[in-house]
Design a protein around this nucleic acid. Structure first.
Length: 592
DNA sequence: GCCGTTTTCGGCCCGACTGTTTTCAGTCG
């Protein structure tokens, strides 16, 4: 059978071609490949299937794909290989993906390190840096060597944990497939995936089956299984070719709830639950909740009183049901005992999206396409928030172009209305915060917009004091509505910049600035503990996709999960509001 | 290598920062 390429795989090949071309100082092409890689990664339809239906013509319809790249995609899909790519790789056979994921390492450095020191992968690089060879290279120095080691350290410290965004699709696929195995009545992904933790160590899957050997056989023989660590009647453990470890456990139906609870965790939550059970004279384990009972021969026995469902388990422990996102033993058990758990924002509560990029800057699609895609997902408004001129590489907008974009938005809104599509497009910006906290667009331009988002994209290394003052000043601009991705972190890649979040939250409260929960799975910024502080302080938040293509809107569920982990209710999130109500918020702040 | 409200050929990829340098290459957004 011919291999069906996922969009991610095609995108990875194209983006590596871009990096190889950048190594050789080829002008313009790297940007073309990089851009098309982003477009394909975010493309809604499977590109292989698209090719199957419409051939090379259909490929050329994809934004950023021209005759040359279409041919390359065709070759990759039909032969499983791409000669052009192989040749480039042969010239510099390195683990490009990993090496360039180190902050500060780009294609030129990778090339030089390979040519001078034969660095092919992370281990080679660490060895070379530790032995002091790197700093002796022309163009490198002590500081660069130190930064490389720091980068490696950071990569390792995020060690072995995968971003939820990459794990969840794999986990859902396994869940779906395992549930089709004969004799299986229930399959559910438990563990940190079910709690929507932002990074995942391994995947725990729970199944109820009348014949455990059948599902276990199927599990260890799946095509993507690279190694089988263990295989038994109730528990098997494997490693997938993606590097992910997956455990499967088969439990009896009457213990399903207790097992689900046990394997969902967190460990701290479970320990606290068991302590509560003991105090009540019970015993709690993965098989159920048990009450002590005298038996006829006077020995102690245990009678199971709950465990078929999680609901009955919590009820028997005299707790309200605790959502998986809250199970971290950070006060949820006490709150559940006192019936004081918050009513969390729901997965279908969002009415709009306040951060969306288009092809006016670094997005891949038009305003109209994005609006239609949002409408198809049930969103009734979106704000177009393209980058501003300071981010020149994204072709950020200046005052002149933003005026032009505003009239384009008017045109699109009219067109949507005529065709009966219920999604209103708001005029917005993702305006750069400059070094001193001033903004990249004039107040006059900002005053014309519906939604002004601001964000930091430069000078991540300012001192805590300077960085905080910079952002606080921006938030004090009366035109500013939202602070986008407030800490700037990229999960597993870049630390948040040093900023006093308590001060930011305080300023948000004073100025009425909304803080964003950027739902993009490698950002998830704000993180859960900040969200909880915002909820406590009465600071309102927005959950935005940061979509750069129509296929990105589904990431909103990650943002909602993050909000739930931060105990946020519907009213804490502004874009659960209707457009009419939403519009009142910024207006109030401007005193009009 | 792509693309067309400024163009089917000639733009696109700017500007700041870091670390290495002493005038600049590499990286990032």
């Amino acid at each position: 059978m011919r291999k069906v390429f996922s969009n991610q795989e095609i995108a990875r090949v194209l983006s590596e071609i871009g990096e190889y071309l950048a190594m050789q100082d080829v002008p313009f092409k790297p940007r073309a490949y990089e851009k098309v890689a982003v477009a394909i990664e975010g493309f809604e339809e499977n590109v292989s299937e698209l090719y199957g239906k419409g051939g090379i013509k259909a490929l050329e319809e994809i934004p950023g794909v021209g005759a040359s790249i279409a041919e390359k995609i065709e070759e990759l899909i039909t032969t499983g290989k791409l000669k052009y790519y192989e040749q480039l790789k042969k010239r510099t056979p390195v683990d490009l993906g990993t090496l360039s994921s180190i902050e500060g390492m780009g294609p030129k450095s990778v090339k030089k390190l390979y040519q001078k020191l034969h660095v092919r992968n992370l281990e080679d690089l660490e060895k070379a840096a530790r032995s002091g060879k790197v700093k002796k290279l022309e163009g490198f120095g002590a500081k660069s060597e130190e930064n490389i080691l720091k980068g490696i350290e950071f990569l390792k410290s995020s060690g072995g944990r995968f971003a939820l965004g990459s794990v969840l699709p794999q986990a859902r696929l396994l869940e779906e497939r395992l549930s089709k195995v004969k004799g299986v009545s229930k399959v559910v992904v438990a563990g940190s995936v079910r709690r929507w933790k932002e990074t995942i160590g391994d995947v725990d899957i729970l199944a109820v089956a009348d014949n455990s050997s059948r599902i276990m056989d199927y599990f260890v023989r799946m095509p993507e299984v690279k190694r089988v660590f263990a295989k038994g009647a109730t528990k098997s453990m494997v490693k997938l070719s993606s590097g992910l470890d997956v455990d499967l456990r088969v439990v009896p139906a009457q213990s399903y709830g207790a097992a689900l609870n046990y394997f969902t965790g967190s460990k701290d939550h479970n320990v606290a639950l068991r302590q509560r059970a003991i105090k009540m004279g019970y015993k709690l384990n993965e098989y159920g909740l048990f009450r002590r009972q005298a038996t006829s021969d006077k020995r102690q026995g245990w009678k199971m009183i709950a465990g078929r469902t999680e609901e009955e388990l919590y009820k028997a422990l005299r707790l309200s049901y605790i959502e998986p996102e809250l199970r971290e033993n950070t006060g949820e058990i006490e709150a559940a005992a006192g019936k004081k758990l918050p009513s969390l924002v729901g997965y279908s509560d969002l009415k709009g999206d306040l951060q969306v990029q288009t092809d006016w800057s670094d997005g891949s699609d038009s305003i109209e396409t994005m609006a239609k895609a949002a409408a198809a997902r049930g969103l009734v408004y979106i704000a177009i928030t393209d980058h501003t001129k300071r981010l020149a590489m994204t072709h950020g907008l200046d005052e002149k172009r933003i005026l032009k974009q505003m009239s384009e938005i008017d045109r699109v809104n009219k067109k949507l209305q005529v065709s009966g599509i219920k999604c209103h497009v708001l005029k917005g910006t993702e305006c750069d915060i400059l070094k001193d906290g001033s903004l990249d667009l004039s107040d006059e331009a900002l005053s014309k917009l519906d939604v002004v988002g601001v964000s930091v994209h430069s000078l991540f290394n300012l001192s805590r004091k300077e960085q905080t003052a910079r952002i606080v000043r921006a938030m004090n601009n009366p035109h500013v509505d939202i602070l986008f991705h407030p800490t700037g972190r990229i999960i597993n890649k870049r630390k948040p910049y040093d900023v006093d979040m308590d001060e930011i939250i305080k300023t948000a409260k004073q100025t009425g600035t909304i803080l964003e929960i950027d739902a993009y799975p490698d950002r998830l910024d704000l993180k859960d503990e900040h969200i909880r502080k915002c909820v406590a302080a009465g600071v309102r938040m927005s959950i935005d996709s940061d979509a750069h293509s129509p296929a990105h809107f589904p990431v909103l569920e990650f943002g909602i999960a993050q909000a739930r982990r931060g105990w946020a209710g519907k009213d804490d999130i502004v874009n659960t509001q209707s457009l009419v109500k939403l519009r009142e918020i910024p207006k109030k702040r401007r005193g009009s």
